[in-house]
């Protein structure tokens, strides 16, 4: 076992050592792609009306008059000092913008995954329990259709039904405008609980309910399908047969033999999904005006805000790489069969 841990630690260090290299490649690619794309921040800020002198003046002010190579080295130099620069459109430090918007995306992503698991796993289980019966077919159709629904359409339908027609949930935003939010970490739900502010907690839950239910619902299909398949595989394995022969009752077999093994792939899926959601669920954020990192990234791309795009991509890449590594470690920890 200790040998395994040693291997795992070695593997972790190896993966960790690759993170800076991955980030360097990603940031360089983003830097180049942004400059190659037509249009620049000056055009986005000034539109078509400004003259050459005004454009040149703004270009100089933003440091865009320097050669691309010089801009690149400046960027790398700042990056080494953990300085992501300032937003070109409003001169606000990029790190502040990320600090304000990333918690919104993480909060939404985390709650959505919990909802997806809460919906997906029971449906997958019910499907397998009633194999080849009506409930199984419904569960399969549910799994495929939720996965197939385009997120923007699903979000708009949810908004139309629950916000406009039934008026149960707010149409968008993250917090009621009538209240002052409690902001310590940026995770409003956590902050409200931490500050014992029940009203703020209620407001935050009320606003996150529809986006997270929608996203959770859309993600639940993959969990239900995957759980059903893996549970079925577990049930047909030799260790379950052995347990049955030993006279262990069905409930124990399910809880102690089948589910733990079926959950390992779910852990991988959850990790990958959470990692992808760390970069924000763009279409959900746009539809529900959720002030997350994906919405910021979309705005920054439209405004050709090079520094902000580079900063957001770099931070979210770091999160994605880190979360993937964490999932790898967790799987290795829980599954002794895995070797590195």
């Amino acid at each position: 076992m200790s040998k395994n841990y040693n291997k795992l630690i070695k593997y972790t260090f190896f993966k960790l050592s690759l993170i800076p290299l991955s980030l360097l490649i990603i940031s360089s690619l983003v830097f180049i792609l942004l400059r190659v794309a037509p249009g620049d921040p000056v055009d986005a800020i000034l539109g078509s009306g400004a003259n050459d002198i005004a454009r040149e003046a703004l270009r100089t002010k933003l440091g865009l008059n320097e050669s691309i190579l010089s801009q690149y080295f400046n960027y790398l130099e700042k990056l080494i000092h953990f300085d992501l620069g300032k937003s070109l459109s409003n001169q606000e430090p990029v790190i502040n913008i990320i600090r304000n918007s990333l918690p919104a995306s993480l909060e939404l992503g985390f709650i959505s995954i919990i909802i997806a698991i809460l919906i997906g796993l029971p449906i997958g289980y019910l499907g397998l329990k009633n194999k080849n019966k009506k409930a199984d077919y419904i569960s399969r159709i549910f799994g495929i259709s939720t996965y197939a629904i385009p997120p923007f359409w699903g979000a708009m339908m949810a908004q139309l039904i629950f916000s406009v027609i039934l008026k149960i949930f707010p149409i968008g935003g993250r917090f009621p405008i009538y209240q002052q939010s409690t902001n310590i970490t940026g995770f409003i739900i956590f902050d409200s609980i931490f500050k014992n502010n029940f009203l703020a907690l209620q407001g935050a839950l009320y606003h996150i309910a529809l986006p997270s239910l929608t996203l959770g619902f859309l993600l639940s299909g993959i969990f239900s399908r995957s759980f059903r398949l893996n549970l079925e595989k577990s049930y047909s394995s030799q260790y379950v047969d052995a347990a049955i022969c030993r006279g262990i009752d069905n409930r124990n077999i399910l809880l102690n033999y089948a589910i733990p093994n079926a959950l390992l792939p779910i852990l991988t899926i959850s990790g990958v999904t959470l990692a992808s959601l760390a970069g924000g669920a763009l279409l959900i954020e746009v539809t529900f005006s959720w002030p997350g990192i994906a919405l910021r990234l979309q705005e920054a791309i439209t405004q050709r805000d090079y520094n902000l795009v580079q900063g957001i991509v770099l931070v979210t890449s770091f999160l994605i790489v880190s979360l993937n590594l964490l999932v790898d470690i967790l799987i290795a920890f829980f599954d002794p069969r895995i070797e590195y």
């Binding site: 908004q159 139309l160 149409i171 968008g172 539809t287 529900f288 005006s289």
Partner: peptide, 10 residues
């Protein structure tokens, strides 16, 4: 709001 459907719905 980030899109016109939300504005209209609101």
């Amino acid at each position: 709001y980030s899109n016109s459907s939300s504005l209209y719905g609101a």
